[in-house]
């Protein structure tokens, strides 16, 4: 676990943006992370204008072609342009990755703060729930829940609403428990402020940085899970391009056209590196404060 950051809750708002920008410039990992992520997002956004092909456009006279000037990354077994499909898949996978984190992040942070701040029985019950969930191997529960709630996007959202909050709850719980013993929380309590107000106004701003750093790493795990479900055939359904189904579609041609499976994987790795750098950079900035 990283060193806990403790921001002064009374930090003035003015001049914050400028210093933040300056700090981004001084933190190379954050800068590179932002640039890498931005390139991916821009490519995914503008792919309809960049590519002459449609993601599902078949061309059976030009199947399994190696990379060329017409097809930058070659074509798959149905003659679909791999580069085009790769970026349309980025749209699908990245959108789901971001949307699927929203509810788990909020519930996890909230439950973690409640658990850490109140302690005692509240904490014990919430911890028991997390312990129970943690007992199930992540992929086992993801596979079963995704299957049970029906393959496709909806299944992925349901799965992560159910299991995604645990990581955040655990990290935030530890942080909140350590903050609770500090003076500024105690003084807020002696002022007679209600618990929920202390949690939202004073605890939240202090646990949020760490939670956001965890969010970056967690998004990588989520993306890999989305892709894995696609590969196993219980994720995003075939006509929609997705990196996971692209890898599994390419697997039978591993001896002749290995790039069909390799390239979508590299896209996942690229996204992972970008998010890792973002997370590390943010952690660095917040540690310095």
């Amino acid at each position: 676990m990283n060193t806990t950051t403790h921001l002064d809750p009374s930090l003035p708002e003015s001049g914050k943006t400028l210093s933040t920008l300056r700090q981004i410039g001084k933190t190379p990992s954050l800068l590179i992370g932002i640039i890498m992520f931005a390139i991916l997002i821009l490519l995914a956004l503008f792919i309809p204008y960049l590519s002459p092909y449609q993601p599902s456009e078949q061309n059976l006279s030009a199947f399994l072609q190696p990379p060329s000037s017409a097809h930058w990354l070659g074509t798959d077994q149905l003659g679909r342009d791999l580069f085009t499909r790769l970026l349309y898949a980025a749209r699908t996978d990245l959108t789901i990755m971001i949307l699927a984190e929203i509810i788990p992040f909020c519930t996890g942070v909230m439950l973690g703060m409640i658990s850490g701040y109140y302690g005692k029985w509240t904490d014990r019950i919430i911890s028991l729930i997390t312990d129970t969930f943690i007992a199930f191997p992540f992929y086992l529960i993801v596979i079963i829940v995704a299957f049970a709630s029906g393959a496709g996007e909806r299944g992925i959202y349901i799965t992560f609403i159910l299991v995604g909050w645990i990581v955040f709850a655990r990290v935030v719980r530890g942080l909140s428990a350590s903050f609770r013993k500090q003076e500024w929380i105690a003084s807020a309590q002696t002022l007679g402020l209600p618990g929920i107000r202390i949690i939202l106004r004073h605890l939240l701003p202090n646990v949020l940085p760490q939670a956001v750093v965890v969010l970056m790493t967690d998004m990588i795990g989520l993306l890999v899970a989305i892709v894995t479900l696609g590969y196993l055939g219980i994720g995003i359904a075939p006509p929609t391009p997705d990196w996971g189904t692209m890898i599994s579609d390419g697997q039978p041609f591993i001896t002749t056209a290995w790039w069909l499976s390799a390239v979508p994987g590299f896209a996942v790795v690229y996204t992972g590196i970008a998010l890792s750098l973002l997370g590390d950079g943010l952690a660095d900035i917040w540690r310095k404060k």
């Binding site: 890999v224 894995t228 591993i254 499976s261 994987g265 996942v268 690229y270 590196i273």
Partner: peptide
């Protein structure tokens, strides 16, 4: 870790098959 964190394990398996088996 920054590089491998985003590697789907099944994909790594496919690449290993390609390299070491095929």
């Amino acid at each position: 870790p920054a590089i491998t964190l985003g590697m789907p394990v099944f994909w790594v398996g496919i690449l290993f098959i390609l390299l070491f088996s095929v």
